[in-house]
Every structure is written in structure tokens, then in C-alpha cells.
Design a protein around this nucleic acid. Sequence first.
DNA 1: CTGGATGCAAAAGATTTGCAAGGTG
DNA 2: CACCTTGCAAATCTTTTGCATCCAG
Lengths: 160, 160
Amino acid sequence: MGTASTAADEPDDALAPEVTKALRARGMRMTTQRERVLAAVSSVVHATPDALAAVIAADGGPPLSLSTVYRNLEALQRVGVVSCTSMGQRAPSYHLATHTDHVHLVCRGCGEIAEVTGRFARDLAESVEKESGFVVDSRHLALQGWCRHCADVTAARSEA
Amino acid sequence: MGTASTAADEPDDALAPEVTKALRARGMRMTTQRERVLAAVSSVVHATPDALAAVIAADGGPPLSLSTVYRNLEALQRVGVVSCTSMGQRAPSYHLATHTDHVHLVCRGCGEIAEVTGRFARDLAESVEKESGFVVDSRHLALQGWCRHCADVTAARSEA
DNA sequence: CTGGATGCAAAAGATTTGCAAGGTG
DNA sequence: CACCTTGCAAATCTTTTGCATCCAG
């Protein structure tokens, strides 16, 4: 989506060089493939490694081997640019770590993923941190539950 | 670690008959195996299907086939007695759904799982529900982050 | 140049499914 | 008796690894 850069405000394209630095600081290198994985992660809200590979393959260049995708996600995680939240059994979800204060709502009924943005997470994180010293990652939180539709269905069921 | 029942307050042993009813209400049956899976889930805080199978095998009776464990966990989930939270890549974790307002803190550094009990989850759930109509499962919430120790290490690292 | 990164293919795990036999209600 | 369940084994799917080759720094 984005083309030109708007100075020091759009992480979109300014991300790569920054990440390159971070990588080199740990003896790792920036490669074409790694950059593509990074781009893919930043262009999608949630994605499994598999889905990311598809996104990458679709964006013009040659497809990447799945193992490369896995290895790069791990590398980017080590550097802290990407993080991963499992949103259910079969769905490790990777996303940019720079996203702030999203709360993802994963429906146990239909699997749909909704999102609310706001201070919710931050509040929770603060309370928990104060109480236990545990630093909660409030940037991207995944909660499970039931969307409005499935909540109805469930209610109906328990009457049966 | 309870043995006897204290009337209508300990779900420990009173659980099975209740679950039986719930199952029958949906055309499902209570079997020895299903009961053993249920017992195992209630005796452990978190456990993967694999770990549960081990617990079951260890508790005296003959071991259950893994597929049976999987199928029963799914069945118990459908009935709502058990729920599952993925606490990391490789660790779908099953637990009794009757536990109330636990917040599990999964450390991304060392993998340790801490717990805080309290209204945190409930507050969050209410806010989110009000805002989006999404019914959050606040009974057992898993948050990711860093325990006190790993948080220090991480901080140290980013200085390097 | 040196050592990290990639691709491929095979290995290792985790989860699901088909089917005949068994048990619950 | 009807129909849900179980076990076992095979099929799937996901993730990890070994190794020769390639490329960033």
C-alpha cells in the first residue's frame, strides 16, 4: 500500500533499515528473504507461518521455502520486531511487535477474529504488573470468548 | 487435593454426575474413559493432551489411546466443562472451565507460568463486552509477557 | 574471504480420521 | 437394539533439521 516515505513517522518503509541494525547488533544479517518476511508480517494483521508464505509468494517475487519463513520469524522474534500469539489450537499468529494496544478477540464458536483498540489492555497490564511484577505484553493481546452471534447460539444451547 | 465432599461446594467429585447430565442433554454419553479424562483435567492446572494421557495412564487404570483423549477433550469443550488456551507455540493447554477468574502469566523468556487471581480479568472482560458485544472468557485468561527475572534480562539486552 | 542464511528433502511431532468392535442408555 | 465411543493404524499437517551451496558484510 504505501509508496513514498513521510519522514520519521511511517515505520512502513523505515522499518527495514532499523531492523537491519538490530540484526547486525546480534551478529545476524539482513537478507532479501528476511526483508520479505518482515514486509509480509507488517502488511497483515495476523498470520500463521503458512499464510505468510502465501502472502510472500503472492507479492511478486519468487516463493520462499517454508523453512526460511519459520527461521526468519524466529530471527525477527529474537530481535524483538515480531511477536507471536497463539490464538487457538492450530493458529500461531505472528505480527509486528510495534502495534500498540490491540486486543484481539478470538471467537471459540466461529473462529472469527475481531479487534478492539484502546486502553483495556494497558489497564489490565498495569494492574497485573503492580500486583505480581510480571510485565505483560499489552501490545497485542489475544482473548478468547464468543462473538455476539455465537454467544447467542451458546445461550440457546444451554437451554436445550 | 481434596478427598471427601463438603456438600454443594466442592465440584471435585460432584462434577462427574453434573457433566453426565450436560452430555446427555446433547445426545452424548458418559463413559469410563471420558470420566477419566475429566478427572485428569481437574487434577492438573494446565496440561497438553499428551501430558493428560500420561496423567491418566499413571492413575491406576489402563492407558487411554491418545485419540480418545483428544476426542474427549473436544467433547468436554463442547459441553463447556473444559476449555483450552494456547500458551505458546507448542502448548495447547486444557483446564477445567469452572475455575474462576484466574489470569495465567506465561513468560516468553523462561516459559514459566505464574498466576494471579482477582478481578483483573473480569474488569477487562466487562469493558470489552460493553464496547464490542464480544463475550470474553474471563474465567481463565492467558497473558504473555516477561516474568520479573526475564524482564531484567531483556532490559539488559536492549542496552547492548 | 568468513560465517550466517537459504533450499530442499527428510525427520520428527502433533492431530485427525476410517473402520470394526464394544458399551451405554 | 441403536447409536455414540473406543482403539488402532494410517493419513495429514505443522515444524524442525542436516547439508551443500550461496551471499551479505
